[in-house]
Amino acid sequence: MRGANLLFRTVGDRELVERAAGGDVEGYNLLVSRWEKKLYNYLLRLTGNRDDALDLAQEAFLKAYNNLSRLGEADKFPQWLFRIAHNLACSKFRSDGRRPQADSESWPEEGEDAAPVMTGGPLPVGSSTRLYPLELELLVARALEELSADQRHAVILKAIYGFKFAEIAEILDCPISTVKSRIYAGFEQLKRVLGGDVGAKAAFQK
């Protein structure tokens, strides 16, 4: 089923990219509607801010549109788009001089909009006999925060968005071997948190 989806994605994207490159704006809009939610959510993880994520997504789609002629292979549109977005997000934070609150959007920093309850130390997940879905979100957010930003980005692109190692290498502009080592190390660390007893507890909830 997964393979079928990927096939559909690739074929469909290619056709739409070609239409858009030929000046068909509606074709491009279809492509946008296919990828916007994924791109927005990826940017949300990167920036931790909904407004920034939406702005950057728009900017990325615009930049992609204006540079479609430079996209050699239409099949590579997704990773190319994500690469544009990733770079835009990185340069935005460089120019703003502010630190992205990566992955903490739902748990704002102390002193902002945070529920102060959440700022002190790790959540006592183990103390509860059940793991609620919301606890799971917290747990995952905390587990991801433990990773380096590079590991986190690579793991998310892989586990959530299903990009191939080679595609992630294109998005992050680094060798495949680097991508692999980031993902292996990051996933191993996540496994220690999510794969143990806590994970089993969550799984049996379902």
């Binding site: 799971l136 747990l139 959530i160």
Partner: peptide, 11 residues
């Protein structure tokens, strides 16, 4: 399990 929970925990 790790991947499943990762996906579920990042809606």
């Amino acid at each position: 399990l790790t991947r499943k929970l990762l996906v579920q925990g990042l809606p």
